[in-house]
């Protein structure tokens, strides 16, 4: 089996200042790491490799700093990693990201599964996985909660999707792009041996030329969504601290809650 896993480097906490009109400056000390949902994607790809054999290739779109999270994938057990970057890729959106990932995956050749996280904790669009699936002509599977079985010869997979109120059981055609939720597994920690191995594996960087990317579909030029302004959330007003013993504060709370007239 041949699997691809797509990972994004994100700030672990939203500790930024807004630089008007539309830029963010992250505070010193902000930790950047692999998107939490992508760790589940990596783990799931590796578990399927453990079961069915084959390879797991990690991809990430971004500047040289992104090499760290690709090394993390290798240390966990991925068999290869590629970083996609070119100055022309800057200022993109989920549409340009999915386009560039699709070019990289095609360049890598035949594949069975692509694993992504449900969403990135920074942009939270949850779009790259499903857009990538359509670009590759693969089956898009959002909210993957469990893989039941893979029939590589029959080119199908049976899986569970987490919907509101329950699990949907689906048989899907391969290749498929699977967007993993948190509940799916417990990501492993890289072993010391894994870290040592990863240090020796080279992570090639592919730019626009290597990918054969059309300039008009990359970065700011290709973005369909243009952020013109960013702002902090409206600050919450109120903040009344209720004083007194349990009797007094619960009386006060009951009056206030009933006063909302929503019950």
């Amino acid at each position: 089996m041949r699997s691809i896993v797509c990972v994004k480097r994100v700030p672990e906490t939203p500790t930024f200042e807004i630089v008007p009109p539309k830029d963010l400056r992250f505070r010193e000390g902000t930790n950047f790491a692999m998107n939490a949902f992508d760790e589940f994607a990596v783990e799931e790809a590796l578990q399927q490799k453990d079961k069915h054999g084959g390879e797991v290739v990690a991809l990430s779109l971004g500047p040289p700093e992104n090499e760290k999270i690709l090394k993390d994938c290798l240390a966990m057990g991925a068999t290869g990693a590629f970083r996609l970057w070119d100055p022309a890729f800057a200022g993109g959106d989920p549409f340009t990201t999915a386009y560039l990932l699709s070019l990289a995956i095609r360049k890598l050749g035949e594949f069975d599964l692509v694993f992504c996280g449900r969403e990135a904790i920074d942009g939270q669009s949850s779009l790259v996985g499903p857009l990538l699936a359509r670009a590759l002509g693969a089956t898009p599977i959002t909210c993957l909660a469990k893989i039941r079985e893979i029939d590589a010869a029959g080119r199908t997979i049976v899986l569970e999707r987490q919907l509101e109120g329950g699990r949907e059981i689906v048989r899907a055609k391969l290749p498929a792009v699977l967007c993993c939720i948190k509940d799916i597994n417990h990501p492993r920690y890289p072993s010391l041996l894994g870290i040592r191995k990863a240090a020796k594996i080279e992570v090639p960087a592919w730019g626009a030329a290597e990918l054969g990317a059309e300039p008009a579909r990359c970065g700011a030029a290709g973005a369909r969504l243009r952020v013109t302004e960013v702002a902090p959330p409206p600050s919450r007003v109120g903040g009344e601290m209720l004083q007194g013993d349990a009797e007094a504060v619960t009386d006060a709370l009951v009056e206030r809650i009933m006063g909302l007239k929503i019950l």
Binding site: R224, R226, A231
Partner: peptide, 16 residues
């Protein structure tokens, strides 16, 4: 639209 867990609100225009 909000992002960063409701910590940022972006104003967006669309192209095309």
């Amino acid at each position: 639209r909000p992002s960063f867990g409701g910590n940022l609100f972006s104003t967006i225009r669309t192209a095309g």
